[in-house]
C-alpha cells in the first residue's frame, strides 16, 4: 500500500514532464534530425495565444514610428522571410540600410543574430530593427505606448499573458514565440535524410561536392555552423562595412560576417551581407575565382576551389533541394487575417 501510493506522484511527474516536451514539439515541430535547440524554452514556454500575438505584431506596422513599416517589409513569408527587391534593407521613409536583410528560419538553433552577431538572444533581436533609424525608426518605449492604447492589443495581450497592459518584456517574448515557429525542415534534402526519397544523379553528385567544398561552414542539417568568417569578398568602398570587428573589437574579426544558412537559398537572393550577388551562379564564380585574400580570410578559402562548369551546376542542383515549399507557403506563417 505504501509503495503503491509512493509510485503515483512519480508517475504524475513523469507524465507532466513528457507532456511539457510534447507540447513544445507539437507547436514548433522540432525535427528529429536537428540538434538540440539553443533557445531556452523554459524562459518563454510556447502557447498558441502568445504565438498568435507575436504573429500579429510581426505583421503590424505599429512597430514602426510612422506606422507604415512592419517586420514583414524586409521579411516576407513568400521569400523565406527575407526580401528580394533590394540588395540592402529598405526601411522607414524609404531609407536604405547597410546590409542585406537575413532570411528568418530555424531561429531556435541560432546562437547569435545579425550579420555581425551583435545580438546574443532571440528575445532581444527585435529591438535592433525597431530602433534603427533606417529600419523602423521607433523605440520599444514608443511601441509599448501604442500597444497599450490599442483595444485590439489589450485583448491579445490579455489572452496571451493574462494582463492587458503591454510591457517590453511581453512584447519581445511574443515576437520570439512567433519567430520560433518558423521552422524549415520539409525540403527534398530533409526527405532524403529521412529516407523518404532519393536524389537524382546530379543532386547526388552536387551533394558530394558540397560536402567536400562547402560543408565545413555550411554544416548540415542547419547549413550553417553559426560561426563568423571572412569569405573573401572585396570590401565595398562606400559601405565600409568591417563586420564583426565592430562588435568584438578584435582585429582577427575584421571583415567577418555570420555564415548564413543555405536553406531556402533559391528564394533568398540577392546573396551575401551586402546583397552583391544576384544569382547562385555569381556565388559559385566568387568561390572559384573571385576570392580576395586578406589577413582574416577563412582558412577554408586560402586554397583555391577548382570546379568545372558541370560541377558548379551540380552543386546548385543540390542547393535547390534545400527549398522548402511547405515552409514558404505555410498559411500559419502568414498575415493573420482570421
Amino acid at each position: 500500500m505504501f509503495h503503491h501510493s509512493l509510485k503515483k506522484p512519480i508517475i504524475w511527474v513523469l507524465i507532466l514532464i513528457s507532456f511539457a516536451f510534447i507540447k513544445v514539439d507539437d507547436i514548433i515541430n522540432l525535427p528529429e534530425h536537428f540538434p538540440k535547440p539553443v533557445y531556452d524554452f523554459k524562459n518563454n514556454p510556447l502557447t498558441k495565444e502568445k504565438i498568435y500575438l507575436g504573429r500579429n505584431l510581426f505583421y503590424d506596422p505599429i512597430l514602426s514610428h510612422d506606422n507604415k513599416v512592419p517586420c514583414e517589409n524586409c521579411h516576407s513569408p513568400f521569400t523565406a522571410f527575407t526580401h528580394v527587391d533590394h540588395a540592402l534593407s529598405h526601411g522607414i521613409y524609404d531609407s536604405i540600410g547597410t546590409r542585406n536583410s537575413p532570411a528568418l528560419m530555424n531561429l531556435a538553433w541560432q546562437k547569435k543574430f545579425m550579420w555581425d552577431g551583435a545580438i546574443n538572444n532571440l528575445d532581444m533581436q527585435a529591438l535592433a530593427p525597431i530602433s534603427h533609424p533606417a529600419e523602423m525608426g521607433s523605440s520599444i518605449q514608443e511601441v509599448v505606448t501604442k500597444l497599450r492604447a490599442s483595444k485590439k492589443y489589450k485583448d491579445l495581450f490579455y489572452k496571451a499573458f493574462n494582463d492587458s497592459i503591454a510591457t517590453g518584456e511581453n512584447t519581445l517574448k511574443a515576437l520570439s514565440q512567433f519567430l520560433l515557429t518558423l521552422v524549415s525542415s520539409g525540403s527534398r534534402y530533409d526527405k532524403f535524410i529521412q529516407g523518404k526519397l532519393k536524389f537524382t544523379e546530379q543532386e547526388e553528385n552536387g551533394y558530394k561536392l558540397f560536402k567536400k567544398h562547402c560543408a565545413v561552414c555550411h554544416t548540415e542539417p542547419l547549413f550553417t555552423n553559426g560561426s563568423f568568417e571572412n569569405n573573401g569578398l572585396i570590401p565595398d568602398p562606400l559601405l565600409k562595412d568591417s563586420g564583426r570587428i565592430k562588435i568584438s573589437a578584435n582585429p582577427s574579426d575584421a571583415y567577418k560576417f555570420k555564415v548564413p544558412t543555405l536553406r531556402n537559398i533559391e528564394y533568398t537572393f540577392p546573396y551575401m551581407h551586402d546583397g552583391r550577388f544576384k544569382s547562385l551562379g555569381d556565388v559559385m564564380n566568387h568561390y572559384t575565382k573571385g576570392i580576395h585574400h586578406s589577413k582574416t580570410l577563412s582558412a577554408e578559402l586560402r586554397n583555391r576551389i577548382v570546379l568545372t562548369s558541370n560541377e558548379k551546376v551540380d552543386i546548385v542542383s543540390f542547393l535547390l533541394t534545400l527549398s522548402d515549399k511547405e515552409f514558404v507557403f505555410n498559411p500559419d506563417h502568414r498575415f493573420p487575417s482570421e
Binding site: N44, L122, D123, G168, E169, N170
Partner: peptide
C-alpha cells in the same frame, strides 16, 4: 533573453 520589471527594455 528578456526580463521585466526594472530590467524591462
Amino acid at each position: 533573453g528578456v526580463y521585466g520589471g526594472d530590467l524591462d527594455p
